[in-house]
Design a protein around this nucleic acid. Sequence first.
DNA 1: GAGTGATATGTAAGTCTTTACATGTCAAGC
DNA 2: GCTTGACATGTAAAGACTTACATATCACTC
Lengths: 168, 168
Amino acid sequence: MLAAMSLRIALLGLLSTVGPASGYDLAKTFDGSLNHVWQAGHTQIYPELVKMAADGLVTVEAEGARGRKIYAITPEGERELRTWMEEHHPVLPARSEIALQAFLLHLMERDQAIAVVERIRARYQAQLEKLEALRPGRFGRHAHALGLALARAGLQWADDTLTDLGKT
Amino acid sequence: MLAAMSLRIALLGLLSTVGPASGYDLAKTFDGSLNHVWQAGHTQIYPELVKMAADGLVTVEAEGARGRKIYAITPEGERELRTWMEEHHPVLPARSEIALQAFLLHLMERDQAIAVVERIRARYQAQLEKLEALRPGRFGRHAHALGLALARAGLQWADDTLTDLGKT
DNA sequence: GAGTGATATGTAAGTCTTTACATGTCAAGC
DNA sequence: GCTTGACATGTAAAGACTTACATATCACTC
């Protein structure tokens, strides 16, 4: 088992949670409610599903209209998913453009630094509004709460930093 | 100008902040105080510096002992850096193993879910301690504050979630 | 002077991710 | 019947990143 393979886990997790689905469905979910958790486009998802089928983690359960292929998780896939949840020590995201801009703020004139922080603030604000509009059902409740907590913390940091920069 | 190239910006930002440095020095900084902002190993940094020199963003200012090469940022590099800071709209990190585990918590038994959240909590706690031990000087103050805010928010989420899961 | 560990730089292979390209189906409205 | 837009799947090339491999210098200790 490789170190990363979180795309696999995300796909297995979705299939286990919502039941059989097509690559297209899965891509829509990544683009929508799973947006703040894990992102992947269809060009990454389709080949990965083929590989996962070859590895026995999913099967093509049915083929529908328009070439639609419905994938279902296998018992081996469930096992892989559970093993990862039980054993994998998650790492914090190690690359953040926002943190990088925050780190480099000292290079800017005051007015420009304020503009940078205001842009970051807007990003966090938009994220917060997106998550607040989401209202998750029985799934994703905890990830939703985490996303909200992090967005609020980022927003608070932006406001504190604007105060610190002496924004009038 | 490509969309990503944040490694370039991070390198330019460091060179602009601390002055001329070798790839080795820069790798050490990424591994140390810049850890929570941007990460990169020497195998990524060395070839990138060569490309940046070819693009005129940095120059080899001197060669020291042990094949040590000292890179300095050029005026063109400064321009590139400033343009990015002024114009680039940063995106939120879109992939988080922690958020993925949080999203999939509903698949676990209560005891195992608690174990997962406790592992996440330990991660945030460790991050918080690392940042609290850091005491940044004149540089990186804002990124440090942001890192602390996010780590504290994550920790708080973990505690709230443990309560929610009815941890005894 | 031999060994060890920190310093210092690099290449190669493989994986992960994005962007651009390419194809075809089906439903609804005109 | 034609157009448009959502549905649906894929490939190819390029870029970003990790892991493993490879080499050599220098300072210090034994």
